[in-house]
Design a protein around this nucleic acid. Structure first.
Length: 483
DNA sequence: CAGCAGGGGGCGT
DNA sequence: CGCCCCCTGCTGC
């Protein structure tokens, strides 16, 4: 600029103007590139703004190549979301005293700067491994003009890889918990995004462990806050609160193996359900995996014992599943994921999208603890050629999930200790009627299962089987026992 | 090894 | 929901 001296041009109302424009853009839904869904309501907003005001979103977008993800906020009220958006866009929000605590809590979940997290002044951001420096508020000083912004997909995609790959110290990087998103624009080189979650207790345990250690070791969960003192990682907090889902895009990958090979790591989900970066390619298979499991289930019943776990793992965790918006804003095609094991009474519909999804569709995941999301009874039976619609019933006490409500009811008694079925012959009580029925055979002396080879009889088919295996396994005629 | 019981899934009604 | 089957773990002989 010049030789004549340095001139400082100042836009006096820059801040106000900026805020106003942003708000206007939001109202008009112009340039919005992410949609927040809460209690059935949708809020088209800008990644830039969310990223700017929340580390949580920043991290999320960083790992979400999707052009227009839909983030489902669970356990947040729509009014809280509205207030937070107002706060983020306008820098101010009016809230009743009574609602303040709630709002703050919501802000904490989303790590909204200024409300829940100390507003970080532009500073050395260099140590943030995963969250690259981002300019602070637009009107603030921004030392590095070139800083990337996260509002658009390009940057994000590019950074994502670099980001994840770089920090040796923090192999798993996904700072955000509870939510995970993954998408990819199918128009680009990678195609799929995926979501996955693990629900089994085992998995959860493992994941939690991972998360914690990650948080602890890398601190990248909260990169900019450097909260060494914080006793428990913010992750834990968000863990069960916010779920995000993401959708997957079609495609398949050539390397299904990668997924399987990764040991179902699905991009390493962390306990909170966040998807650790499964880079863009590991995730693809989620769907396939899923469908494969379903098929397996229907084809080989006897081997499906662990199906739920597997499905769960494949599906989701706390965060997510993938779904598609059916055409035109219709959410019916949503494939929702399992949400965090923290929620209760969760019932979710799993929908498997057809391979032909509209490329542009938003991707989203939904967690509806409230069932708010439109989940019309879209159902195409599970075995059908079309997308299976299954209602997943999850135990609020553990990671157990089942597609049958009845099973869940029985299962819940394990936790409640309730044993409604009493034996009329003794003091025995059971949690399920079936167990009692089997027990009563002891008293009646009935042994329905008879060995064809010897006089042996048993009350349980499994016992007969074991008997045969140990005594007659060499005989040609295995039992065909029974009743 | 056999007996029992706990948990769960599949299938039919 | 009911019934049946399967798998698994524990216990006692």
């Amino acid at each position: 600029m010049g030789d004549g001296g340095l001139l400082s041009l100042s836009w006096n109302n820059h801040k106000a103007t900026f805020c106003h424009i942003l708000s206007t853009l939001r109202e008009k839904e112009r340039y919005t590139d992410v949609t927040l869904a809460c209690e059935g309501k949708f809020y088209p907003v800008h990644k830039l703004v969310l990223s700017t005001c929340s580390e949580y979103f920043e991290s999320m977008f960083e790992h979400t190549p999707c052009k227009h993800p839909i983030i489902v906020l669970k356990d947040l009220k729509s009014d809280e979301v509205e207030s937070l958006l107002s706060y983020m866009y306008a820098g101010v929000v009016n809230v009743a005293q009574n609602d303040l605590a709630r709002l703050i809590k919501a802000a904490e979940l989303l790590k909204v700067k200024g409300l829940a997290v100390p507003d970080e002044p532009p500073q050395e951001v260099e140590n943030r491994k995963n969250s690259p420096p981002r300019s602070s508020r637009d009107d603030r000083s921004s030392p590095h003009p070139k800083r990337r912004r996260r509002d658009d997909s390009d940057g994000v995609a590019g950074e994502q890889h670099g980001t994840n790959a770089s920090p040796p110290a923090s192999p798993r990087t996904s700072p955000y918990h509870a939510a995970s998103e993954f998408h990819q624009d199918n128009s680009r080189t990678h195609n799929e995004g995926h979501v996955s979650e693990h629900r089994t207790e085992k998995s959860i345990d493992r994941l939690e462990h991972d998360v914690r250690s990650d948080a602890k070791s890398t601190g990248d969960l909260n990169p900019d806050q450097h909260n060494p003192a914080k006793p428990c990682s913010p992750l834990q907090v968000m863990l069960e609160e916010t779920l995000v889902k993401e959708e997957i895009m079609d495609h398949l990958p050539e390397d299904k193996d990668s997924l399987m090979g990764s040991g179902m790591d699905y991009g390493s989900m962390t306990s909170d359900g966040r998807l650790e970066n499964s880079s863009s390619d590991g995730g693809t298979q989620e769907h396939q995996l899923l469908s494969a499991k379903y098929e397996q289930q229907s084809l080989a019943p006897s081997q499906t014992h662990h199906l739920p776990e597997a499905v769960v793992e494949a599906l989701a965790g706390p965060s997510g599943m993938q779904g598609w918006l059916g055409g035109g804003g219709d959410m019916s095609g949503t494939f929702s994921g399992v949400d965090s094991y923290g929620g209760d009474s969760r019932h979710q519909d799993l929908r498997q999208p057809l391979p032909t999804q509209q490329p542009q569709a938003h991707q989203m995941v939904r967690l509806d603890s409230a069932g708010s999301f439109p989940d019309p009874g879209v159902s195409s039976g599970r075995g059908g050629a079309a997308a299976p619609a299954i209602k997943l019933h999850q135990c609020s006490h553990c990671g157990y999930s089942t597609f049958k409500k009845f099973n869940l009811d029985n299962h819940l008694r394990i936790h409640t200790g309730e044993k409604p079925f009493a034996c009329s012959h003794c003091q025995y009580r059971s949690t399920t009627k079936e167990t009692l029925r089997r027990h009563i055979l002891i008293h009646t002396g009935e042994k329905p299962y008879a060995c064809k080879v010897c006089p042996y009889r048993s009350t349980q088919s499994g016992l007969l089987r074991n008997h045969v295996l140990t005594h007659h396994v060499n005989l040609a005629s295995l039992p065909g026992p029974k009743r």
